[in-house]
Each structure stands twice: as structure tokens, then as C-alpha cells.
């Protein structure tokens, strides 16, 4: 078995006496796409903050490529729940921010990526003039252009309407299939998790521990029509049942 890219080892976190993460353990392999599914308020964002070093876990370790990165910032690339684009930076300057902080930017690559994402002509536009879907795209390009090998996406599409959401999922897959990186993806949406990922980790209600792990059996590249097929719906039901157990 290949060494895991990122390991969450027995991580616990408590806020003022309430336990939020409870001995959480799972792995992310290299170039793997793993979704984390869990009820609202279960501690998913907290988990990302711990992985990213914004919070220190009470116990446990975050391990990347075999060495501990617990409490260290800047080791993963992160896309927050809201796009968080800096309003005084143009689209181009915004997508370069993550790599700028790490010390090396590649303007040409950024321009190519913007073009491929259907945002050409908007390079020098300020975020305020963009639609919600466009902002999420810019935010995602920013995390993709950051040099870190693991990307953590916190419910990137939950604020979008159904149509934009489907477009964005397709777009995300096409980009990811080209630039394979290891991705941790938080979502509320079972269908989204199934369509996008290699593996799904279902978290329990607070305090969060791993309730169940599913391996998604569908081959890549995936076509949007997949979501209407019998095997897909069977998987969906299975996960749905698991979640029903929680409540």
C-alpha cells in the first residue's frame, strides 16, 4: 500500500468543554479525491482549521508525507466556504495570492488557468463585478495555483444555485483530472460527494468521529449522466441510510 499523503491520526478538539472532534482518524492517499460528509455543526470546518494549523488539536497528529505538520500553517492549500477574494485585487492578482505568500508566482500559468476556466477577459476585473459562480472559480484557481500538494475545499458550492452547482462540479472534475492533486472536499450533498470523489467519509454528529467510509466504485472520467444510472442511485441510497442512522 502506498504511503498516505495526509494522515489524520486520532485527532480530538474541545471548545470550552464541548467536544467537537472525537478521536478522528482517516487518510488521504496521493492524488486521491476524498469527500467528507457530515451534518451541519458537526465540526467539519473545525477539522480543516486543525489540519491547516489555524487551531491546535487537544491530542492527535496531522501527518503529511510521513512527518508531523500539527499546528503548522501554510502546509495545505485551502479554499474557504465563502470565496474570500480580496476586493482590492483583480482576478489575476487574487489567484496569485496563495503562491505569492509562499514566495513564487507564475503569471503565465495563472493566465492560462483563468482562460481555461472560461474567465478570459476578466483577468483585470475586481471580484465585486463577478457572479457567485465566477468568484468560486477564482477562489478555486487560487487554491490550485498554490504550491501545496493537498487542497482542502470547504463546501465550495453550497452557496450556489442548482444550475451553477452542476456546471461547477463538471468544471472541477475536468480541471482536477488534468492537474491531479490530493483533495479533501467537505460537502452536505450526497450526490455531489458521489459524483466527485474516490472515497467518502461520513462523519457522525457532534462530537465528530468517522461513522462510515465508502469507496466510490465509478471509473473516471465521469459523465454527468452518471447521476441518473441505477448503480449511482443504489450507492446514494446506501449513504442516505447511513446518515439517517445519525439522526
Amino acid at each position: 500500500m502506498p504511503m498516505a499523503k495526509l494522515e489524520i491520526q486520532d485527532v480530538s478538539k474541545t471548545f470550552d468543554g464541548t467536544s467537537v472532534l472525537d478521536h478522528l482518524t482517516f487518510q488521504l492517499k496521493d492524488k486521491e479525491f476524498v469527500s467528507i460528509l457530515g451534518p451541519s455543526g458537526s465540526g467539519k470546518s473545525t477539522l480543516f482549521h486543525v489540519i491547516g494549523g489555524l487551531l491546535s488539536p487537544d491530542s492527535g497528529d496531522i501527518v503529511m508525507d510521513g512527518s508531523s505538520i500539527t499546528g503548522q500553517r501554510g502546509k495545505i492549500s485551502y479554499m474557504p466556504q465563502s470565496p474570500s477574494l480580496l476586493p482590492w485585487r483583480t482576478v489575476l492578482e487574487n489567484v496569485l495570492l496563495g503562491s505569492e505568500i509562499q514566495g513564487k508566482t507564475d503569471r503565465e500559468q495563472a493566465l492560462r488557468m483563468i482562460e481555461k476556466s472560461g474567465l478570459s477577459g476578466y483577468e483585470h476585473t475586481y471580484p465585486e463585478q463577478l457572479s457567485g459562480g465566477m468568484k468560486q472559480r477564482v477562489s478555486f484557481i487560487r487554491s490550485l495555483l498554490s504550491p501545496q500538494p493537498v487542497i482542502c475545499l470547504d463546501e465550495p458550492f453550497s452557496a450556489l444555485d442548482e444550475f451553477t452547482r452542476h456546471d461547477m462540479q463538471k468544471w472541477l472534475l475536468s480541471i482536477w483530472e488534468e492537474h491531479q492533486r490530493s483533495i479533501l472536499f467537505i460537502t452536505h450533498n450526497i450526490e455531489e460527494a458521489l459524483f466527485l470523489s474516490d472515497r467518502i467519509i461520513v462523519l457522525s454528529d457532534r462530537p465528530a468521529h468517522v461513522q462510515k467510509e465508502f469507496t466510490v466504485p465509478f471509473s473516471r472520467p465521469r459523465d454527468p449522466s452518471l447521476v441518473l444510472t441505477e448503480p449511482f442511485l443504489t450507492c446514494k441510497k446506501q449513504i442516505y441510510k447511513e446518515i439517517r442512522k445519525l439522526s
Binding site: H49, G52, G53, L54, R73, G74, K75, I76, S77, Y78, P80, S82, S84, L86, W88, L97, G98, E100, I101, Q102, S146
Partner: peptide, 29 residues
């Protein structure tokens, strides 16, 4: 300065000086 921007900058590994120059200063303009 917006908490979300600060979170992003910190997660991305910004130093205190980067946080100030790239975020807080332009935000205060």
C-alpha cells in the same frame, strides 16, 4: 479586517508582516 480574509491568509501560511502588508493595510485604505 474581515475574519474570513484573515483565516484564509493564515491558513495559506502568511507571516505577520504579509498579513499586514497584503491584507490589513489595503483593507484600511
Amino acid at each position: 479586517t474581515n475574519r474570513e480574509y484573515i483565516h484564509y491568509m493564515k491558513m495559506a501560511g502568511a507571516t505577520r508582516s504579509q498579513l499586514f502588508r497584503k491584507l490589513e493595510w489595503p483593507h484600511a485604505m
